[in-house]
Design a protein around this nucleic acid. Structure first.
Lengths: 327, 327
DNA sequence: GGGCCATCTGAAAGCGCTTGCAAGCGCGGC
DNA sequence: GCCGCGCTTGCAAGCGCTTTCAGATGGCCC
């Protein structure tokens, strides 16, 4: 930076200001500084900057899994929006464990991040306290409930479950069931399941049939769980799956068994993954705005970075039923 | 840190050493320091540390896409191995653009990372120079060719394409074709296509039929591309897809058209994604070690971090044909 | 033309750690 | 009993920026 200052014939404080808050430096000097920066290929040392300013252009993001393409799409969209503004993403993978999440939050905080983004609303108490004490924007995403820590960007998974059930009822199905996986671990899937069960109880006056395997959701568990459901309730005529990957597995299981979809069994998934529109029959599903969540989080954060007066908000990004041939 | 030092009755340098290189501090003091750290809930400021030491426990990773579950799985595995050792991942999304990659490398470098991990071997010249000048381990992953920048962890995509072709030939198919997408952008897919074409030329003495759509690979493009292939070559009897998502789209397209798989048309994919084993018929595919790449990269880096004498290596993680019912 | 205010720039004090250097200490050998 | 060597520990000098504070500059009004 001293070199840049020398070449531009100014002091390092001016260089810093020209690079940081351009408007506080006269246009002529600003141009000279930028020329010098370009000529020297100067790249500021982020750590020195961060240390001096006690904040950095870093956003810590913790997701429970990357293989789950929901969060991958959200992250994708988030980097897309944040990177051009010079914000780096520090990635953390909690593997659905609150303890791991706590450890990640701790180490993220040691970087004085500009914000921290978490998935869901379930956190260790210590995590929440530490987060609140940091005095930076905190965003919880992908879930929408009470008592937000700070900002919230998501939608109601209970409502998703309710909609799935209503959709099957609308299609004239009465012997309907919910198929999930790892519901103890995946809170949001459990909420969808609960919403589904609510509607079943309200409309049909009986407890809902829910089959959940302990393994993680996948096409394999979808097929296996459907097999188990059929073994226990051979007369089932409509199934809501916890996500599209499982629904795909269910669809294939039906093909193997010669079960007509939707003639014998109506299927509805969640996610609107790439293949849903292309399967035979095309998969009815509920589309969560995977990318939009990332964009909304990024936009909200940028706004709060730019305007210190901007406070936390709750953004309901909603979701959408995509009825197709499978139901 | 001063507080910790006071509580432990030592100087800050001792605290730093106890935390950093434990062996250079007597066991008694080390224990006192750790007690004090625990009592105070002290979390070191990474930036101050990084600034003073001119290096950080940070690894910059650039992938071309997260939605592509190949890289998501690799990243997942990498974080799993790196996080427990205190290394943070800075995530960059190049979106298959060398310019974006160059910008990301630049900003990563401003954090004095412990290493940088790139996807593939195609980079802007300036990127490579800057990287080499940084004097840190550089890993290129997912591709295996000549002239590694530094370390290399991957496999030969040309060999994958060759194997796909040979597999179809082994199954007695002669009118075989390759179906891909965005081959100009996705170098590795292009290499698979080239390997496929080589074998066709060698064994059948004619140029290979390759259909590639400009859009990104997906079930949708797989179905569309297969439709185009069938329009141009109705007599095709074997197809290798650039990846499993496309193959799935192709399989569904066959179901729609009543084309028997594998009776009329043999299908082979690439990736061994979750659903491949569960489709009807189960999808023959070539399995790249998605997670293993991440683990190998992480292990290699940790080794080089621990032992400054350790140099770059090239690791061929290989791949595996998984023959199933679709071929 | 002088005085005052607004605007822009520079000097310098850290930000919280790491690490080279040197001093302190205990112990074994002569 | 003294010397010297190794192992520990503390001192203090930065690492490369940001930002406060004050000084310089120029424009404008009376």
């Amino acid at each position: 930076m001293a070199d840049v200052a020398r070449l531009a014939g100014v002091s390092t404080s001016t260089v810093s200001r020209a690079l940081r808050r351009a408007e506080s430096v006269s246009p002529a000097l600003r141009a000279r500084v930028h020329e010098a920066v370009a000529a020297l290929g100067y790249v500021p040392n982020s750590m020195a900057g961060g240390l001096a300013a006690a904040r950095t252009r870093t956003v810590g993001v913790i997701v429970p899994s990357l293989v789950n393409s929901f969060f991958a799409a959200t992250l994708d969209a988030m980097t897309e929006r944040l990177a051009p503004r010079g914000y780096q993403i520090m990635l953390g993978n909690s593997a659905y464990s609150p303890e791991t999440e706590a450890a990640l939050v701790n180490s993220f905080l040691s970087w004085s991040p500009a914000a921290i983004v978490l998935t869901g609303q379930a956190h260790a108490r210590a995590t929440m306290q530490r987060l609140l004490g940091a005095g930076i924007p905190i965003v919880e995403m992908w879930e929408l409930g009470e008592n937000a820590l700070d900002s919230l960007v998501g939608f109601s998974h209970r409502a998703v479950g309710r909609l799935a059930a209503r959709h099957l009822l609308d299609r004239g199905r009465r012997r309907i069931a919910f198929v999930g996986a790892a519901l103890d671990e995946d809170r949001r899937a459990a909420q969808r399941s609960a919403g589904f069960a609510e509607v079943v109880r309200e409309q049909l006056g009986r407890p809902a049939v829910v089959v959940a395997l302990p393994q993680r959701a996948s096409a394999a568990t979808g097929g296996l769980a459907l097999a188990e459901l059929l073994a226990r309730h051979p007369d089932v005529d409509g199934v809501a799956f916890s996500n599209d990957a499982m629904a795909l597995g269910g669809l294939f299981e039906c093909q193997r068994r010669g079960i007509g979809v939707p003639a014998d069994l109506a299927l509805v998934g969640f996610g609107d993954l790439d293949f849903a529109a292309w399967s035979t029959p095309a998969l009815s599903t509920i589309r969560p705005p995977r990318r939009e969540i990332g964009l909304a989080v990024a936009d909200h954060l940028l706004q709060r970075f730019d305007d210190p007066h901007a406070g936390p908000t709750t953004i309901d990004v909603g979701f959408e039923l995509v009825p197709r041939a499978s139901s």
